[in-house]
């Protein structure tokens, strides 16, 4: 008898506590930037596609849900001809983000991706690519890698010497 009354009392007291339940979807939780949700492809500060189609994300993916085909544009920049993520398989582990050498692929704090039709969970590049650099604002792969693209020749990267004159034997 006493225990019933005690339980009622405790329950009654809870009416004055701070509420833990969030009234989703009217009310939304704040997620940190490191939260691993929907995957996006980001762009350089100069709005070029960051993804160079190196296939490392695909190789790192434990459920093999990323496929792409690398190609090269006329300026010599590599980019994915298509980039497909099958979110119905994705486990949001973030390995792809860790593997990405160009900060192109990033997981963002958005998880509201439910679909009635599973086929709609297959995202192509136009659905993945965003117009911004995401979590790494200043990074530009082509300023660091030693490859030449049009408008930026050999030796014009950060930390590079001008190209060697092969005809010179001077020290």
């Amino acid at each position: 008898m006493f225990s019933i009354v005690r339980s009622l009392w405790i329950t009654f007291l809870h009416m004055f506590h701070k509420r833990e339940t969030v009234q989703y979807p009217e009310q939304k939780n704040k997620l940190t930037t490191r939260w691993r949700g929907r995957i996006v492809l980001t762009r350089d500060p100069d709005m070029g596609e960051r993804c160079v189609g190196c296939y490392l994300c695909a190789a790192a993916c434990p459920v093999d849900c990323i496929s792409l085909q690398a190609t090269e544009d006329e300026s010599g920049r590599r980019y994915p001809e298509f980039f497909r993520i099958n979110f119905s398989r994705c486990i949001f582990c973030g390995f792809c983000e860790e593997a990405c050498p160009t900060y192109a692929i990033q997981l963002i704090p958005d998880f509201e991706m439910s679909e009635y039709n599973r086929q709609n969970l297959v995202y192509e590049k136009n659905e993945l690519l965003i117009d911004g650099p995401g979590k790494h604002p200043g990074y530009n792969f082509y300023n660091i890698a030693g490859v030449a693209i049009s408008g930026k020749g050999k030796g014009e990267n950060d930390n590079e010497m001008p190209p060697i004159d092969t005809k010179s034997l001077l020290p």
């Binding site: 695909a58 849900c65 993520i85 192509e124």
Partner: peptide, 11 residues
């Protein structure tokens, strides 16, 4: 290490 088998024909 073959990749993409749950995605390559998903389109």
């Amino acid at each position: 290490r073959y990749s993409g088998r749950t995605s390559m024909l998903a389109n």
